[in-house]
């Protein structure tokens, strides 16, 4: 019950098929305003090729899984959902080969994804910031906790971590950080993530947020958050 499509170099169609091909093509025409080939080409811009599996799930949501190739070698896999009715996308996971480090490949993936989401009328991207680095990295990339409740839960974790290093901070620093952790405003996460106070061979923001897990979102109507994200992914210099 899926559609699949293979895109070769220069965006050429290599293969296609699947029982849902017609439905997925219709979804693309409705929400992306162009057909499935154009949708796939936009997602694979700046890459040599990709194999994509697409599936329509309930309420017109599209699930996309994609393998990305560069010079004949698989370099990345990504999975995400697009829910145009809710104007929302969910980034499930993305993995890349270590060889893609310093090639900017992850930026190209996020840029291509942004192009598609924009044209599908998506206004927010959500994800679960987790694993070892996710809790810190996504905060630095402009994502904020989805709800005040999410922030309150995370703040509890941060308070406990802060307690363990309180003696290493100067009174003024500790005072400012405690003020942020106690705040009900989820923007406090960004304030903490960017903190440059040196703690245990790293920064305070990184020390507190590494290893945490929270549900995050990037709201396209939140100008400062979007600007940070666009700068990080290399769209804005």
């Amino acid at each position: 019950m899926t559609a699949f499509i293979g895109i070769g170099s220069r965006g050429g169609l290599r293969s296609f098929g699947g029982t849902q091909f017609a439905q997925v093509n219709r979804w693309c025409t409705t929400w992306f305003k162009r057909d499935l080939i154009h949708f796939s080409q936009a997602l694979t811009l700046r890459f040599n090729g990709a194999n994509m599996v697409l599936r329509l799930i309930s309420e017109d949501r599209l699930l996309v899984r994609m393998q990305i190739f560069q010079a004949g070698t698989r370099i990345a896999s990504i999975a995400f959902r697009i829910d145009p009715q809710q104007q929302r996308a969910f980034l499930s996971w993305t993995v890349l080969t270590p060889a893609t480090q310093r090639t900017g490949a992850f930026r190209h993936i996020l840029q291509n994804l942004l192009l598609v989401l924009r044209d599908c009328g998506i206004t927010r991207i959500s994800l679960v910031a987790s694993l070892t680095h996710g809790g810190y990295v996504w905060a630095i990339y402009g994502f904020l906790p989805e709800t005040a409740g999410q922030w309150a839960r995370l703040a509890g974790v941060l308070r406990r971590k802060l307690l363990a290093i309180a003696s290493e901070l100067k009174p003024a620093e500790l005072d400012a950080v405690q003020k942020l952790v106690a705040s009900p405003d989820r923007l406090a996460l960004r304030a903490l993530a960017g903190s440059a106070i040196p703690v245990r061979d790293t920064t305070l923001g990184k020390h507190l947020l590494m290893g945490t897990e929270w549900k995050g979102e990037l709201d396209f109507s939140d100008g400062p958050s979007v600007l940070i994200y666009l700068k990080r992914i290399g769209v804005v210099p």
Binding site: P98, F106, T132, H133, Y141, R232
Partner: peptide
């Protein structure tokens, strides 16, 4: 093929381009 989460590469990128780690002044 060994794969790593994108977050790992994003962090490595942040650390190599250290000027990006801090928040923009206006923020």
């Amino acid at each position: 093929i060994k794969f790593v989460p994108m977050e790992e590469l994003m962090l490595a990128d942040l650390e190599t381009t250290s000027n990006l780690v801090s928040l923009p002044t206006e923020e």
